[in-house]
Amino acid sequence: MLIRGDLRLKTTIIVNGEARALDVDPRTTLLDALRERLGLTGTKKGCDHGQCGACTVLVNGVRINSCLSLAVMHEGDAVTTIEGVGSVDKLSAIQQAFLTEDAFQCGYCTPGQICSALGMLQEVADNWPSQETADLTGRIRLSDDELRERMSGNLCRCSAYPQIVAAIKSVAGELA
């Protein structure tokens, strides 16, 4: 048995806690649905091919590249974008840390960096290993090298990398 749709498909996605009904072309990526249909332009398009991380969002709490996913594949999923992380009037701790540490310059990769960091910290809390994890069976400690490896899916051409490490470290304790 199959659910099928042709040129348009109705899909409901829970975006930042709110059910959003979409009637979309199945070709529409989650990224374009957010940006062009829902007006949530905080999520950025840097490469559209999963090669830069600027489009990172959390889906059911897990970070993914929203450019490499179709909106229709996310029926019922809970999506958190940068707009759901905090607002200008109420910056979340990690947003404040990025501001304080100057963890961005042009700002285009920043929402993706922040969403990625939130997902990454949860992965560490869940004791997921990385390439930097020497002892696969022990408890993971978020060393600088672990953090750098885990954030390597987010390019920053301004190269605010050291500042990004500082920002994430400054909140890792309270969020992880």
């Binding site: 332009t41 707009e83 905090g86 607002s87 947003q95 404040q96 501001l99 929402p111």
Partner: peptide
């Protein structure tokens, strides 16, 4: 900065 870290700076 507050606009950039919240994704509300429109490019």
């Amino acid at each position: 900065g507050p606009l950039k870290v919240t994704g509300t700076a429109p490019y």
